[in-house]
Design a protein around this nucleic acid. Sequence first.
DNA 1: ACAAAAGTGTTGCAAGTACACCCATGC
DNA 2: GCATGGGTGTACTTGCAACACTTTTGT
Lengths: 229, 229
Amino acid sequence: MPRPASARPNLPRQEIRLSVDTIVFSLEGPELRVLLVRRPVEPFAGREAIPGGFAEEGESLDAAAKRVLETETGLRDVYLEQLYTFGDPRRDPRGRVVTVAYIALVRPPAPTPRDGRWATLAALPALAFDHARILEYALQRLRYKLEYTPVGFRLLPEEFTLKGVQDAYETILGRSLDKRNFRRKLLSLHVLRPLARSARVGAHRPARLYRFDEQKWEGLKEKGNVFVF
Amino acid sequence: MPRPASARPNLPRQEIRLSVDTIVFSLEGPELRVLLVRRPVEPFAGREAIPGGFAEEGESLDAAAKRVLETETGLRDVYLEQLYTFGDPRRDPRGRVVTVAYIALVRPPAPTPRDGRWATLAALPALAFDHARILEYALQRLRYKLEYTPVGFRLLPEEFTLKGVQDAYETILGRSLDKRNFRRKLLSLHVLRPLARSARVGAHRPARLYRFDEQKWEGLKEKGNVFVF
DNA sequence: ACAAAAGTGTTGCAAGTACACCCATGC
DNA sequence: GCATGGGTGTACTTGCAACACTTTTGT
């Protein structure tokens, strides 16, 4: 329930609206995908866009991102991080809309929300507003971040094989990595807990399953041994 | 001149205000300093704060940061980059204010604006709002960024000595660096243009002057040889 | 000649890269 | 027994860290 503006004498009148939009990434098939929703109304009616909505009175930006994402797509308990704020005055034809963009990473199997689809990066349609630019920026950040922090695990199932991690990295970075070197480096961080169970799929030796160890990772962060942005 | 909200049927009413605040860093003495201004009015009247103001209708966020900074402090032609957006609903007692924070780096000699002062990090006063947190975040970003990109040159005079660069780095990072290793690494980037002239100060051998070569730096960025955030 | 800062190379270590074969399982 | 992907070690290269002396100038 917004108080009238007159109750806030020090605050100027502004015709600026604040929206919170999220680029949602997931790995599906062996491809990096982005969640797009189709706009039912003008402007850009019929075009696809990244999910988003307007911030409400009493909520923080993080909370708004979470709420909007759940409302629009049904996705919950996903990794969310603020990306950048886009404020060009002409980016929305309706008027002045400033968008705080977030990145979300969801684990497979990622449900497909109604009115949404998982688009591959190779076959992106024309997007509404300046969403193409936002997406490009998000992708760049994801790639950079992947090299310094184990953010990639947020795109994997809770239990995964080393091969799975490597495939994910290769997909996102768009280049192939040496198996032995990759495994050595990954294990040398000591943030993976091997499980007793293995993944039995196909006519070949089953691969050991691992879990990401949040605690050890937090420990490393606190000791400043890692780059975290 | 804002159009009435009724002309924008698709935009919701929002009582959210958008401010753009900037953490201004400079090197003075041999210390990293932050520009603080004293608040003349409530809330937090008399307290010091980082300079900032409200965004206007037709301007981009970058433009707003530039304008506000010049209006409040008289500083122009400084390096500006967006830091993060802070949107906790209780961060301003007047109501909902979302702040897009920027970092600015200014070269010496940095003029001291009226109603402002350059505070050292060692002796920071209690700041208004959540500005202490914003400042802490900015400092962290500055330090990280220094290690991957030559932002540091934005804090130096146009012409500088290698010693000058090293002093700057040591100040900001808070640790001492090996002279030979530092020089080798810096020169190996090939982004410094040595000048014929030298800096003659004091009873000892004068040091060669250098300039930062923006062009070569842009070239490296495009080739993807460098980490740029 | 001496005080003061500028400038300069080498060695050891750690991390990264390149590279090829045996192992366990299902069919 | 063979096809399929899982799992492992070693040599080379490169970048980073540690370390001390000579050079140039002003006084």
